[in-house]
């Protein structure tokens, strides 16, 4: 197999200590192996898009990073912190406190937004900074208003999620995740649940975020044109492994692996 491909981080990400590093991670759901001896590293500030057929393990990578799913074998570190503790117990092999510390660096945007329906837009964005980071109401609101302005929804702050369109809800969800000031932001198919005419406004917000140098972004998406435009690196997943990865231009114009070519043909038509 070509050395540039697959399981090795490329030159750009190897330069700095990786912010995320999967080493030989295996994740199983019962008898089903979702990630198979998986290796993957992301440099600080890097924007990486994960593409591939459904069930190939892309979303699982994000869910493991967010500590929504445990993994069975291998090592995973985030900003140098290993997910598993030496004497960690339970499926996550770590204490609640340790997981709490890891999660303080990561944020996630979900496919179906998952806003809290019983809280106003403003409350959705202020709740975590106030309750988890200990910000005062005023500080949290100040931060929230800035973020809502950034996603163009400051005027909707007193609305409830059910009163917003899907695109607006997802923009609030992005503001909510950013309010925790994560180093790593995960997007799990952020536009897949949206009507086609609402996709653009969400991609616009993510595009603006991609120009932030400090923020590391991992994006699972089926929007190929967008992936090509915003990412530093594209990883093609199949059957729990990265089959091919590289700069978007190369992956989209000259994929080396037949499976990548096949997949791109099927989604780009």
């Amino acid at each position: 197999m070509n050395k540039v491909l697959a399981q090795q981080p490329d030159a750009a990400s190897a330069a700095a200590a990786p912010v995320i590093e999967f080493r030989n991670v295996t994740k199983r759901f019962g008898a089903l192996t979702v990630l198979d001896d998986f290796n993957f590293a992301v440099a600080p500030g890097e924007k990486v898009t994960l593409i591939g057929p459904s069930g190939s393990g892309k979303s699982t990578v994000l869910r493991i990073l967010m500590t929504l799913e445990p993994f069975q074998e291998g090592q995973l570190t985030l900003a140098g912190i290993p997910y598993h503790e030496p004497n960690g117990k339970g499926p996550f092999r770590a204490s609640d406190r340790h997981l709490h510390q890891i999660r303080s660096h990561v944020g996630m945007v979900f496919q179906s937004f998952n806003l809290f329906p019983h809280m106003s837009v403003l409350r959705n964005v202020t709740e975590a900074p106030a309750a988890v980071l200990g910000l005062s109401r005023a500080e949290a609101e100040c931060r929230a208003i800035d973020l809502l302005r950034m996603v163009g929804l400051a005027d909707k702050k007193d609305h409830y999620p059910a009163q917003l369109s899907g695109g607006q809800q997802q923009r609030v969800a992005i503001a909510r995740a950013l309010a925790m000031r994560p180093r790593v932001l995960l997007f799990d198919e952020p536009t897949s649940a949206l009507d086609p005419q609402l996709v653009g406004e969400v991609l616009g917000v993510i595009r603006n975020l991609a120009s932030e140098h400090d923020l590391t972004m991992l994006l699972v998406t089926h929007e190929m044109r967008f992936a090509r435009e915003v990412s530093d690196r594209v990883c093609f997943f199949d059957k729990g492994r990265i089959v091919e990865e590289g700069e978007p231009e190369r992956i989209f114009t000259a994929p080396a692996e037949p499976r990548t070519r096949e997949f791109l043909q099927s989604v780009l038509g």
């Binding site: 303080s104 996630m108 975590a128 988890v132």
Partner: peptide
């Protein structure tokens, strides 16, 4: 899951 992602 959303609550967990926000570290509640």
């Amino acid at each position: 899951e959303a609550a967990r992602a926000l570290n509640f």
